[in-house]
Simulated scan of single mutants.
Amino acid sequence: MSPFPLEAFLTSLPWAALGVVLVLAVTYAAAVGAGTGGRARHSVMDVAWGPGFVVIAVISFILSAGEGDDGRRVLLLVLTGIWGIRLGAHIGRRARGGHEDPRYVELLKGAHGSRNAYAVRRVYLPQGLVMFFVSLTIQVGMFATGALGWLAAAGLAVWLTGLIFESVGDLQLERFKNDPARKGTVLNTGLWRYTRHPNYFGDASVWAGLFLIAAESWPGVLTVLSPALMIWTLAAKTGKPLTEKAMAGRPGYREYVQSTSGFFPWPPRRH
Rank of each mutant, 00 (worst) to 15 (best):
W49T: 03
V47M: 12
S114I: 05
K109S: 12
R103T: 10
Y118G: 00
L87R: 05
V78C: 09
G110M: 01
R115N: 04
I56R: 09
I91F: 03
A95M: 15
I62N: 01
G110P: 10
G88L: 02
G50I: 10
I85F: 12
V120W: 12
A117E: 09
R72V: 01
P102I: 15
A31Q: 07
E100W: 13
W83F: 14
V55P: 11
G71I: 02
H90W: 10
A119C: 00
G52W: 10
G84T: 08
A119Y: 02
G81Y: 10
R96M: 15
A48M: 01
H42R: 13
N116P: 01
I56A: 02
T80D: 03
A48K: 00
G98K: 15
R72A: 13
G84E: 01
Y104N: 11
A89P: 08
E100F: 05
A31K: 05
V120T: 01
H42N: 12
L108K: 02
G71N: 14
A57Y: 10
L76M: 13
S64F: 10
I56C: 08
A40K: 01
A89M: 15
G84F: 00
A111I: 09
L87D: 06
P102Q: 12
V47G: 14
L107W: 12
G38I: 10
V47L: 12
T80M: 03
S114W: 09
G37S: 11
H112W: 05
A34H: 07
L75W: 07
G81K: 07
I59W: 09
L107C: 06
R86T: 08
G66E: 12
I82H: 05
V44W: 07
R39K: 11
H99M: 07
G97P: 08
D70G: 15
I91A: 12
G84Y: 04
H99T: 14
G98L: 14
P51C: 09
